[in-house]
């Protein structure tokens, strides 16, 4: 593999992974420019939107190399974000060679083995403590904790079917709300609204929302509006799920 090809592989790969794990556009752009400059390209054109990376690198008069990457799905992973960040810092400060940097990048891209029970527990604990913040009492918190566990277990179980986001979050809303209504009828929780809000909070698209705002603040308007639309769509799906569940149980009006 030629030198320029390797630089391109590293630059485009880092950009792709950064977007995938939840970085804002300006960071991706900055990191890619730094890496390309450090390995001495003579010309570079980089364009990034929230689901694609376009790079053209030049070295000398003749050699040119172009890469287009489509990034259809985002899976938030802040550990990967930290590791890519320190990789780019080390490339500049410790002067890593191209092969060393590529080897370390492949290692980061591979990721770590994830323990699903850890996430299920976190979803439960998060739902329970947020239910308390919304003003629920001890019984409501335990109800929300239970529903948070069940909700994430459901998400983990259906992950391999690759359901569309819309369907997934509507089903999640239905599941959490019907579970809460069930718990209320059994007398295990006292306040329906705090319990429901607590149990659906693990689904709230916080990363898309915050990144959307940051992109707009950096005047990356296209990526920002796409991300805010994404967050809004997910929120509407959750709300629709809640309404469907209320109707199924014959609660709430006509």
């Amino acid at each position: 593999m030629g030198d320029l090809k390797k630089i391109l592989k590293l630059t485009a790969g880092v950009g792709e992974e950064l977007i995938r794990c939840g970085a804002e556009i300006s960071r991706v752009e900055d990191t890619m420019n730094r890496i390309a400059l450090h390995y001495g390209v003579t010309g570079r054109q980089i364009f990034i939107i929230s689901n694609g990376v376009f790079v053209n690198l030049e070295k000398g008069e003749e050699a040119k190399n172009v890469s287009f990457q489509h990034i259809p799905q985002i899976s938030v992973d802040m550990s990967k974000l930290c590791e890519l960040n320190s990789l780019s810092r080390d490339i500049e400060q410790m002067d890593l060679s191209l092969d060393q940097a590529l080897a370390r990048f492949e290692c980061v891209r591979g990721g770590k083995k994830k323990n699903i029970w850890q996430y299920i527990a976190a979803s439960g604990v998060g739902a329970g403590s947020f239910c308390y913040l919304f003003g629920g009492d001890a019984k409501d918190c335990f109800g929300a904790l239970l529903m948070g566990l069940i909700l994430w277990f459901f998400f983990t179980a259906v992950e391999r079917y690759r359901l569309p986001k819309v369907v997934l979050h509507t089903l999640g809303g239905i599941l959490a709300t019907s579970g809460c209504i069930f718990l209320l009828r059994l007398g295990l929780v006292n306040h329906l609204e705090q319990t429901i809000m607590g149990s659906i909070i693990p689904m709230i698209p916080g990363v898309a929302f915050v990144n959307g705002i940051r992109d707009i603040a950096d005047s990356d308007y296209i990526s920002g509006s796409i991300r805010l639309l994404d967050a809004m769509l997910i929120f509407i799906c959750i709300a629709a799920g809640v309404c469907i569940a209320f109707r199924l149980f014959g609660m709430g009006g006509v």
Binding site: V76, D77, M78, K80, K114, A122, S123, V125, G126, P202
Partner: peptide, 8 residues
């Protein structure tokens, strides 16, 4: 808990 969900 949210930190864990986002793999911090």
């Amino acid at each position: 808990a949210f930190g864990i969900l986002f793999v911090v």
